[in-house]
């Protein structure tokens, strides 16, 4: 893996682990829209942004 992949890969790994841990700990009693619902949506968006940057230099060589 090149450096860029390592950097963004690690970042995504942390997001995925947080997506498991936070809802089952900090947010398990938050029964509002801004609880797990909001968190998972935000994490989904963060994943899109991370993929955008991770793949930014892919060229059109066939």
């Amino acid at each position: 893996m090149n450096n860029k992949e390592k950097k963004w890969g690690l970042f995504l790994l942390i997001i995925v682990l947080s997506a498991y841990i936070i809802p089952y700990t900090l947010l398990s009693d938050v029964t509002k829209w801004y609880g797990s619902y909001f968190l998972w949506c935000v994490f989904g968006l963060i994943a899109i942004i991370a993929n955008f940057f991770l793949t930014k230099d892919w060229g059109d060589e066939e």
Binding site: L12, A19, S36, W40, A47, L54
Partner: peptide, 20 residues
Amino acid sequence: GVGALGFEMIYFMGVSLVAI
């Protein structure tokens, strides 16, 4: 409830494997 969203979002984030 919302756990279903979490389930699908974990799958969704897993598609990042395509980037690698």
